[in-house]
Each structure stands twice: as structure tokens, then as C-alpha cells.
């Protein structure tokens, strides 16, 4: 996973609420057995409209996406995060996310920034003309017009994103605790282990 600390660039002023993962990446793109190349399917239905935001020259390769409430709701498909990453998105800024999507984003080096609607409204305005700066270390979003918004993030997620850490390697360090839990189940609740049919 690519570490992420500071991201500066144009932000797509998308702003829609309840954007579901079927909108981010339609089901037909889920037939792949790879994580690569899903950017071409990202927001496919919306991008069928030639005037769509994503394909305007100023927003092509924009690293930031501004969205509305409950972004990434619906399906658990991590393809949504892969598609955004392949599109060049490193940061999403929204008032709230579905729980599954925000976890998937972090695991793919995409920072989900949570800001109140008033801040989103202001950033949407700035995004139409100017770049936005996001700093994970200081947990701030700033604009060339002296706007400065701070955001909260779970410390573990922050550490993983800043260092580009692979969570499985971290968990493997807890081998003894996992083995102890397994041993306890085997002796206290043996019925929890399904029979071999």
C-alpha cells in the first residue's frame, strides 16, 4: 500500500448524497479476478453523459473527490475503492461514509476525510476554481483562501495510512493471543467447531 501524508490538487466537486457502490462501480465490473484497471468502470453510468464532471479536463487525474452524506453505501465490494484508486483518487471528503466503504478505502491507501456539511459546501465552491490541500499528519484540509478545516481520524487508521502498512503482517504479531483464544474455544465450547461431513 502506498503511504499517504500530504495530497494537493484539484478536487472533483461531486457532492451527491447516498452514493452507492453500484454507482461507483457497476456489477459487471465485478467479474474481474484482478485488482487492477477498474478506473475505466468508475462512475460508468454517470460518465455516459459527456458533460459529466469526472471527464472535464480540469478534473481528470484529480486526487480528491468531494461527496455527500453516506458515501459508498450498499455493497461491500472493495472494487469501489480499487476503482477510485485507479482513477487517481487519494482522498475522499464527505460528511459521512458507509462503515464498510471507509474501511476498504483505508486498506487501499485512500484517506476518507469526514467534515461537516458546511465545510463541504465551502470546499465544493473552492473546488470549481482552485486546488485543495489535505495533510493527514496535521489532520487538516486547507485552501488557497485561508480556509482551514481539521478532521478526526482513528489513530490506528492514521498510522496505517501514513506508513503504508499491511494489516495482516501486524496481526501476525498477535499469534500467541490468537492461538490462546483458539485453545480456549476448543476446551470450553467444542461444539463451535463444525463437524466434518
Amino acid at each position: 500500500m502506498t503511504p499517504i501524508e500530504k495530497v494537493e490538487g484539484r478536487a472533483i466537486p461531486f457532492g451527491l448524497k447516498n452514493v452507492d457502490t453500484d454507482v461507483i462501480i457497476p456489477a459487471k465490473w465485478l467479474k474481474t479476478i484482478s485488482r487492477e484497471g477498474l478506473g475505466k468502470g468508475a462512475f460508468e453510468t454517470l460518465r455516459a453523459d459527456p458533460d459529466n464532471l469526472f471527464d472535464q479536463p480540469e478534473y481528470r487525474q484529480a486526487p480528491i473527490l468531494i461527496a455527500g452524506d453516506n458515501f459508498g453505501c450498499g455493497s461491500s465490494r472493495e472494487h469501489a475503492a480499487w476503482a477510485l484508486g485507479d482513477l487517481g483518487i487519494r482522498v475522499v471528503i464527505a460528511p459521512s461514509y458507509s462503515d464498510i466503504f471507509s474501511g476498504n478505502a483505508v486498506k487501499n491507501g485512500i484517506l476518507p476525510v469526514v467534515l461537516p456539511q458546511a465545510a463541504i459546501d465551502r470546499l465544493m465552491e473552492v473546488a470549481t476554481t482552485d486546488p485543495i490541500h489535505v495533510d493527514l499528519d496535521t489532520q487538516t484540509v486547507t485552501t488557497p483562501f485561508q480556509d482551514r478545516f481539521t478532521f478526526e481520524i482513528d489513530p490506528f487508521r492514521k498510522m496505517c495510512l501514513l506508513n503504508g502498512l499491511d494489516e495482516i503482517s501486524l496481526t501476525e504479531k498477535s499469534e500467541a493471543a490468537i492461538a490462546a483464544h483458539e485453545k480456549k474455544i476448543a476446551s470450553d465450547q467444542p461444539w463451535l467447531i463444525p463437524a466434518t461431513l
Binding site: 472493495e78 464498510i100 474501511g103 495482516i168
Partner: peptide, 19 residues
């Protein structure tokens, strides 16, 4: 019971746990 993304699927396959 809850849905997980593919990175978490890999995490559970490897460690039988989730953070």
C-alpha cells in the same frame, strides 16, 4: 454477522481475526 471487503477476506483467511 457483517460484510467485509476483499482485503478483510484475505485478513480473515490468513489470521481468522479482524481488527
Amino acid at each position: 454477522a457483517f460484510g467485509i471487503g476483499t482485503s478483510e477476506v484475505e485478513h480473515v483467511l490468513a489470521t481468522q481475526t479482524l481488527l
